[in-house]
């Protein structure tokens, strides 16, 4: 469970987040949706500590992350896995070395134990025989899978996904969404996914927060989102022709 309480964040005097409070539930995919520039990525970066909040707090199972120093945060960071929009795999390392990286950094496992764990994680994301390839040799979908494998290598309690299916074809996007959903349930992880993809929302949206102009505008689930009378949310949801047709059915 992650509790975000009254977060505010400004850059160069421009306020990006206004008093945002959201509770993210364990064992569920918590979606943060919103248009580009709405503040959803800043919100995620504040939650994981890449940006310091101006005021408010972020609690990981009751532990106030915003009040901790770099060393104290380390204990929580070991419990966080993150899948980046562009995968953020280390270019100079092979797939195997990428997934092994957090294990080498934080565990005292033997080489064999680490290799077993790497192979387990890669198998879990359906990647076989790619251990010695470099990220540049993989397709976008495969890079995302390696990113997921690296994110789950240390058995995280919290998983963050920044636009997990951006740049992927719809079919591969759904495969990645389903994979994240399966992993969330299997390991009872608190997963937070930032997206503006309606396919993802309809596929995985159990607990959805809509961010608009830096404020939490609406929350609910994938059933509620189709029936809401919230004007801004409807504009966002039904912005594409296919969704407009769907509404008229």
């Amino acid at each position: 469970m992650i509790d975000v309480k009254n977060i505010n964040k400004s850059f160069n005097g421009k306020r990006i987040l206004h008093d945002v409070s959201i509770g993210f539930k364990q064992g569920e995919i918590n979606l943060v949706i919103g248009a580009s520039g709405s503040g959803k990525s800043v919100l995620t970066k504040c939650i994981v500590g890449l940006h310091e909040v101006d005021s408010g707090s972020v609690e990981y199972d009751g532990r106030d992350f915003t009040q901790m120093n770099f060393k104290e945060r380390k204990s929580i960071r070991k419990e966080i896995g993150m899948l980046f929009q562009g995968s953020a795999l280390f270019d100079s390392l092979t797939v195997e070395e990428n997934v092994k990286f957090p294990l080498e950094m934080y565990t005292k496992n033997s080489k064999e134990e680490n290799l077993d764990r790497v192979n387990f994680c890669l198998k879990r994301v359906d990647l076989l025989n790619v251990n010695h390839l470099y990220p540049a040799e993989l397709s976008g979908g495969m890079q995302k899978r390696v990113g997921i494998a690296r994110a789950i290598a240390l058995n995280p309690k919290y998983l963050f996904c920044d636009e997990p299916n951006s740049g992927l074809d719809p079919r591969t996007g759904i495969v990645i969404d389903n994979l994240i959903q399966e992993i969330t349930k299997e390991y009872n992880i608190t997963t937070i996914a930032v997206t503006h993809d309606m396919n993802s929302v309809m596929e995985t949206g159990e607990n959805i927060s809509f961010i608009h102009q830096g404020k939490k505008w609406w929350d609910g689930n994938k059933e509620d989102i189709l029936k809401t009378d919230n004007e801004e949310l409807n504009e966002f949801v039904y912005s594409s022709k296919i969704m407009q047709k769907f509404r008229n059915i």
Binding site: V48, G49, F84, A88, L89, D91, P102
Partner: peptide, 18 residues
């Protein structure tokens, strides 16, 4: 610089690495 703009440095920071 490439590591910065492709979020590889963010990935290190999130892992708790200096």
């Amino acid at each position: 610089g490439t590591m910065r703009i492709t979020e590889q440095i963010d990935a290190l920071e999130i892992m708790g690495i200096n």
